[in-house]
Design a binder for these strands. Structure first.
Lengths: 126, 126
DNA sequence: TGTATATTTCGTCATATGGCGAAATAAGGA
DNA sequence: TCCTTATTTCGCCATATGACGAAATATACA
């Protein structure tokens, strides 16, 4: 039950759900997720660690950047099923659609530029 | 997104999940759910109203008793899918199994006896 | 009509959650 | 080695949540 509740509680926040939907089919750098959600880096980092603890995402570190992706081999059955369900229920959702638009621009931007001073002044792309 | 998040947030509490699992294939009187969860009547009532708001359960009133059941025609697609998923993921769960045992005794007990003084001293069956 | 009682609503409290900024950490590049 | 910077950790604050008991509500029954 603990595993299951961890997954559900991880999903019980709209920003975390949006992050998961953004990771559909690709990995993203933390700064890209920060840009998408418009939250402070520390907040996004906390959200991602909650998702990771629930085994919904995996991460790897490359140089200064940390990349997150949807969990695959690392996922528990509960997490795996939750991810499938999420994609089925939300892929046509208006919020998710809008995020996809935003992401098109975000992924086209060089992370080097995207991250620049993100901690001091957010919204480099807006 | 609002509907979906309402459903997820309604599921993000173990006691509410246990209540939903207990309603599998039958309706239950509030006093029976109180007995199962071992919580104060007011607390259980609040939990059930959250489940109802998320369209996960329906209720009817018969005499002094209120009966809750899993939502059917009243359920939104989000709620309906969530209920299916819940049953699939948790029907073999240890906590749920234990609850099923408890429920066997609870449903055999006359509600009249079960409810007696439940507000003053809980745990008539223990 | 009046009483008993199952349930809900309300008020309160303790804890959990989500947000931020500052400081710590880690890794690349000078 | 030292500096820059992406990310995480920590400390704090405001709000949300879940618990309870008391009071209100509603309904059967005397």
């Amino acid at each position: 039950m603990r595993d299951f509740m961890d997954v559900i509680k991880a999903l019980a926040d709209e920003n975390r759900v949006r992050a998961l939907m953004a990771l559909r089919g690709r990995e993203l750098c933390v700064c890209q997720i920060i840009e998408l959600l418009g939250l402070a880096p520390s907040t996004v980092s906390k959200h991602m660690s909650i998702l990771k603890q629930a085994r919904l995402v995996e991460s790897r570190k490359q140089g200064r950047w940390a990349y997150y992706r949807l969990a695959a081999e690392d996922a528990t059955p509960d997490a795996r099923e939750a991810l499938v369900w999420l994609q089925e229920r939300l892929s046509t959702n208006p919020v998710v659609r809008t995020d996809r638009k935003k992401l098109q621009a975000i992924v086209r931007t060089d992370p080097e530029i995207l991250c620049r001073g993100q901690c001091q002044a957010r919204g480099a792309l807006s």
